[in-house]
Design a protein around this nucleic acid. Structure first.
Lengths: 177, 177
DNA sequence: GCATAAGCGGAGGCAGCCTCCGTATATTTA
DNA sequence: TAAATATACGGAGGCTGCCTCCGCTTATGC
């Protein structure tokens, strides 16, 4: 890959992340190209579809999430699970406007990002298994349950982290007496 | 209002509901107008913005939800609350593709639909208050908590009602042992 | 320095958004 | 029932954003 091509690629990614964060996934691609100082043609060569661009932006997030997950596997299993769920909420929220796309990647095996999701899942499943072993959580709880509830909470309280945390705790502790 | 105008209004609403259900909120307005057998001009006169059209479609759902809620206020408070949350999930799912808009209406006091939301809220708050009185649920639970979690679950499992119900029960019963 | 492969840019064709206003039709009035 | 009037209709047209295509530019290897 030529040096200028790589430079443009990075610039586009940066501007896209900013634009999606500010205006959601519908941000104008022509504007993103302009902001990155390249023509539309260049944008489309690097990212043939809007989806490709979105996925590329998300890819970075995955790295960060995986790192967090690895850190947590060291600690106390009961706390670790809550910590991991909370960390997921933070990461998803940091990707404001891309929550829906992220959920698609998680749920749809066709998505090019699904592979990376799987690696997160296995970490997540590991944390869950440990928590079950120590009797910290109910044994019928599954990894997909956790993924679904976390995305649901992240999405429905996208701009209210305090409520996210509250809902997570309600979920963990239960509501019925 | 002239008779033909009313007829066109109804037709547009019907076609819009179908189009939004099939293609999401981004469905082409020109296509909706065509399907309803009117010109775009007519569509825009009745519904100046896409938002107006979406809200009009949602309005019907609210009637149905309010009716369900009233029915439930009669039964056993503990069960009634779960029944109401489940009914909400069903209603929201029936509005496939409009979940996000519905959530906006609920959370944003500026929304023209917020008034109707409020009336649902008061019914909902009534059910919650009764459940608290009988000691069925924890006393710190609030109506907004319930609204947020229900929308989150509905959104994240839009096409999987079984998982919706499962997540709802996990939420009610709790996950930690 | 030159050849050549790799990459660039933006014009242009297309689709959907929304407005505007001349035309048509329902309703009222006499 | 026919004229008068208010009401509503339709779709052309201007605009913006999407995406493709290809002649031009520039980096890189020899």
């Amino acid at each position: 890959m030529r040096a200028d091509a790589r430079r443009n690629y990075e610039r586009l990614l940066t501007e896209a992340a900013a634009a999606f964060g500010a205006n959601g996934t519908e941000a104008s691609l022509e504007d993103i190209a302009k902001a990155a100082g390249v023509g539309v043609g260049t944008l489309y060569r690097h990212f043939p579809t809007r989806q490709d661009l979105i996925l590329a932006v998300l890819r970075d997030r995955f790295e960060a999430m995986a790192a967090t997950a690895r850190d947590l596997t060291a600690g106390d299993p009961g706390r670790a699970l809550r910590g991991w769920l909370l960390a997921q909420l933070h990461h998803i929220t940091a990707t404001r406007g891309l929550t829906a796309e992220l959920a698609v990647a998680v749920n749809n095996p066709e998505s090019p990002l699904h592979g990376q999701c799987e690696s997160l899942f296995s970490i997540s499943a590991g944390l869950l298994a440990k928590a079950k072993e120590t009797g910290a959580v109910r044994p019928d709880l599954t990894q997909p349950d956790l993924a679904a509830i976390v995305h649901g909470i992240a999405w429905s309280c996208e701009s209210d982290p305090a409520r996210q945390e509250r809902l997570l705790d309600l979920f963990l502790e239960g509501v019925l007496l």
